[in-house]
Design a protein around this nucleic acid. Structure first.
Length: 309
DNA sequence: GGCCAGGCTAGCA
DNA sequence: TGCTAGCATGGC
């Protein structure tokens, strides 16, 4: 057992409270709150850590106090890897000021960004976890998807014990690959969902599919490659690119939430169609993902409905 | 009780 | 190539 802590400085603006507020709305299967710190386990190169993040700054001068615990000895190189992973997850190095500057000529979107100043994506912890959760989230409501996620975690992996408390660890591809369809059927997965999740994990575990090398490819190339896999469609890959890889310029023009948000913010009488969204989105490039994210958030302003994370 | 939920596949015309 | 039933369950 070992414990370390360090300070992490994201680029400004960075509003940690605003970012994590979205996680508090629903019972999340991976994140917890402990004494104001956002806590979850991370798997990095076959080592598992418990990481706690607490804000000690503000949006203009952001600073995070990071606490790291593990059952194994933590080396300085491990801490560097943890910080690198957290910076990616928290999109801490994205140049939000350029994004805001890009929208200066658009009064509607400028107001939306001002209302959510300092908001950044919190990405999924890794690509395998992201794709697995997205497949599980297909078609079913978010509450049920969360239940299925939790059951998958409980069925496939051992929790991490720190100071007498058990923390769920998202299973590795190998652990999910070792499950049988029947095991997930018992957890109320449909036959198809069980097959999609396990077959995907097996292709990753066997090395047929290398998720990390996908990072070298363009969005459209990744979409074309992954939709060939049974159980993975365009929507699923777009979620993967957004919440797994943090690609900044994705426009999910068919998304109902995005279309509703455009209708609301621009005061349109009817929900705009996909071609209209593409037309509008042309001027958002190279920040389409961020405009989409902020528009989604503008829908949640009153209802506080959580989105995928 | 019926309909929908941030889809996708398989089967059919 | 394009359309649609079926999937499984929870929430409203």
């Amino acid at each position: 057992m070992s414990a370390h802590r360090f300070e992490m400085i994201p680029s400004a603006p960075f509003d940690f409270e605003r970012m994590t507020k979205r996680l508090q709305g629903v019972s999340h299967e991976m994140f917890r709150y402990e004494d104001g710190a956002l806590v979850r386990t991370l798997r990095i190169a076959d080592k598992v850590y418990l990481v706690g993040m607490r804000s000690t700054g503000n949006a203009e001068e952001p600073s995070l106090d990071i606490q790291v615990n593990a059952e194994h000895e933590i080396k300085p190189s491990d801490l560097e890897e943890v910080e690198a992973r957290l910076r990616t997850m928290l999109t801490a190095d994205v140049d939000l000021k350029s994004f805001y500057a890009h929208l200066e000529g658009d009064p509607v979107l400028s107001k939306v960004t001002a209302d959510h100043y300092g908001l950044r994506f919190i990405l999924e912890a890794d690509l395998f976890e992201c794709m697995t959760k997205t497949i599980i989230g297909q078609q079913v409501n978010l509450t049920f998807a969360s239940t299925l996620n939790r059951r998958l975690v409980e069925a496939a992996s051992k929790p991490l014990e720190i100071n007498g408390t058990l923390y769920p660890v998202f299973p590795s591809a190998q652990e999910v690959a070792a499950l049988t369809y029947e095991q997930l059927r018992e957890q109320q997965f449909s036959q198809r969902k069980a097959e999609y999740v396990i077959d995907f994990a097996r292709s990753v575990a066997e090395g047929t599919l290398d998720l990390e090398t996908l990072r070298l490819k363009e969005d459209e190339d990744i979409i074309n490659q992954l939709v060939k896999i049974r159980g993975i469609g365009r929507w699923t890959v777009e979620c993967f690119l957004l919440f797994g890889m943090g690609r900044p310029n994705l426009l999910p023009a068919a998304d109902i939430g995005l279309r509703n948000a455009i209708r609301k913010n621009y005061g349109l009488d009817v929900q705009p169609g996909e071609p209209f969204v593409r037309e509008m989105g042309a001027s958002w490039s190279p920040w389409c993902s961020y405009v989409t994210f902020y528009l989604w958030e503008s829908l949640n302003q009153k209802t506080n409905v959580s989105t995928i994370i």
